[in-house]
Simulated scan of single mutants.
Amino acid sequence: MDAPDAAARRAPGPTGPPARNFPLAFLRQLRTRDLLPPGLAESDAPAPPAGAAGRPPVVLIHGTWMNAYSTWAMIAPGLRAAGFDVHGFNYGVDRGCRVGRVGGVAGVADLEASAAEVADAVDAVLAATGAERVDLICHSQGAIHGRLYAQERGAGRVRTLISLGGNHHGATLSGVSRLGDRLTAAGIPVEPAFTRILGPAGLQQTPGRPIFERLNSAGELREGVRYVNFASRVDWIATPWAGGFLDHDPARPGACDPAVRNIRVQDLGRGQWPDHLSMLYSPTVLAEIIAALGGPARQPDHAVVVPVWGQLRPPALAGIGAAAAAGWLLARRRRRRR
C-alpha cells in the first residue's frame, strides 16, 4: 500500500461553517477535501476573549474515516466561544486504499504512521504557543493517539485527556471484527481485501491487536494526566461501549482512580441518546467538556440528541409531534368514513 500522502494531510484547508448534525457535516466533509472546522486558532475565527490566558491550548484529534471538520464542526466553535485556544488538523490520509481516495476522508492510514504524525502536530502546537502543557480532546481512534502521546513523546506535557467514544481496548464494530476473525480462521483471507478497501487503521483497532498491548501493558493511566471519558450505551461502533472507559470495573462503577472521570452520556440528562457519531453534536456533552477544562458555566441546553443525526431542537420536536398528530387524525377520519 502506498505511503500516506504527507502533502495532502498537512496542507491547510478551507474552513467550513458550524454544524449541529453529523450527517450534514459529513456530507460537507466529502465535498471539500481538507475541510477544517470553524473556531481553530489558525482560522479567521475571533480571538478568545479576555480571561483565557493561562489555559493550555486545546488540540482536537479526530477518528477513523472522518476528518477534523465532520468531527469538530460543533465542538471547536463552542470551545472557541468559551475562550479556549483551539487547534485541529487532519491526519492519516492514505490514497492507497479506496476509501482514502475519497475527498475529505482521513484517519485511515497505518496506526504507527498516524501516531507519529499526531505527535508531530501536538509538538508543533506547543512550540507555536510556547505552552508547557496541552489539553487533548480525542474521538474514537484519536484516543489511541492522544494516549500514546501522553505516555511516550509527550510524557509530562498533557494536562487533560478527554475521549469521546474512545477506542481504549479494541472495538468490535457490533461484532463485525469477530466475524472477520472467524472467516480468517476458516481460511478465507478477508483482511487483505478489507485493508485495500478501507485502509489499515480499521482492523488495527480490533481487540487483541498490538497497539493495545503498547497502550495498556504498563497500566492505563499516566501520572499527572486527568482523564475524562464519554461513552454511550447505544454506541454501535466502539463496542463494547464500556470499553470507552479507563480504570473501569463494572462491578464497582464508582471506584475508579481519582484522576479519572467516566461518564455515560445517558446519565447527563433526559433526551441524551447519542451514538458514536452524534455524541459529537450534543450541547450537553460540549458543556461537560468546557467544565472539565475549567471553562465558564453554560446555561442548560434542552436539545434532544438522537443516534446518527445529532440535535433535535424543541421547534423540530414540536414539528414532528404535530406531523404525527395530523397523521393520526387523518387515519382516524378515514377509518370513520369506511
Rank of each mutant, 00 (worst) to 15 (best):
A242R: 13
N229E: 09
G244C: 15
S217T: 11
L215Y: 04
W241S: 05
R252D: 14
D247Y: 07
S232V: 05
R233F: 09
P250C: 10
A218D: 11
G219N: 01
G243D: 09
R214S: 10
W236S: 07
L215K: 12
V228Y: 01
D247I: 04
R252C: 14
L215A: 11
G244L: 01
V228R: 03
H248Q: 06
P240K: 08
D249Y: 09
G224L: 13
L215V: 09
S217Y: 09
N229Y: 03
A251P: 07
R233A: 10
G243N: 13
E223G: 12
P253H: 14
G219R: 00
R222E: 12
H248N: 12
W236G: 01
R222L: 11
S232E: 02
R214W: 05
W241Y: 15
A231H: 01
G244P: 05
I237G: 03
P253V: 11
N229K: 06
L221G: 06
T239W: 02
A218P: 03
V225F: 01
P250T: 08
H248T: 04
L215H: 12
R214T: 13
V225N: 00
N229G: 03
H248L: 09
P240V: 08
R222G: 06
L246P: 03
G224H: 11
D247S: 09
I237E: 06
A242C: 12
R233V: 10
A218N: 07
V234A: 08
A251F: 09
D249C: 11
P240E: 13
A251C: 07
Y227T: 06
N216T: 10
R226K: 14
E223H: 14
A231G: 08
I237W: 02
A238D: 09
R226H: 09
A242V: 14
R226T: 13
N229F: 01
P253L: 11
W241T: 07
A238K: 07
R222P: 00
I237S: 04
V225Y: 02
A238R: 01
G219M: 00
D247C: 12
F230L: 09
A242E: 15
